[in-house]
């Protein structure tokens, strides 16, 4: 059974996490170093969330575009909803996940790799967010991640 039962659930939970938490972190500003939109394409359930960088002065350094409504992405990451759920827990080694085709990347991957070390500060926010929205049942136990 997928963690996110349908697209609405994914948009609500993962999209909500990006919208209300990730966008307002210090690390979110690093999207400007990437230099373009980052599209997450999900399977099981099918969904798309794009991080679209915006000019300084707005409330957060990027906005979300859902369901294919965003601009052409610089980088695309394809994964299942379950894989994304595990990734944002910090339970997935991206290099391993790419090698195993759990995550498929298109575009200049090296630019996204700059963000990776900074995600360690964001991962704990996901479990906190799930608890805060009453979905503590989705919090995963610690996972080795094949490291």
């Amino acid at each position: 059974m997928p963690v996110f039962q349908d697209s609405a659930a994914l948009y609500n939970i993962l999209g909500g996490f990006f919208d209300t938490r990730v966008r307002f972190t210090e690390e979110a500003h690093l999207i400007h170093q990437v230099g373009g939109p980052i599209l997450f394409v999900f399977e099981e359930p099918a969904a798309q969330i794009c991080w679209v960088p915006v000019e300084s002065g707005r409330e957060a350094p990027f906005e979300l575009a859902l369901d294919g409504q965003g601009p052409s992405p610089l980088l695309t990451f394809r994964q299942s909803g379950d894989t994304a759920h595990r990734f944002w827990h910090g339970g997935l080694d991206l290099q391993q996940a790419l090698a195993r085709q759990q995550v498929r990347a298109q575009g200049p991957l090296s630019r996204a790799m700059k963000l990776l070390p900074h995600l360690d500060a964001i991962y704990p926010l996901y479990a906190d967010y799930l608890q805060a929205v009453g979905r503590g049942d989705l919090v995963l136990p610690a996972h080795g991640g094949g490291r």
């Binding site: 299942s80 379950d82 894989t83 339970g91 080694d93 391993q96 195993r100 759990q102 996972h143 080795g144 991640g145 094949g146 490291r147």
Partner: peptide, 13 residues
């Protein structure tokens, strides 16, 4: 999913 299930059974290794 065989991939996810086998990885779960082997602590991701």
């Amino acid at each position: 999913d065989p991939l996810s299930a086998v990885l779960d059974l082997t602590d991701g290794r």
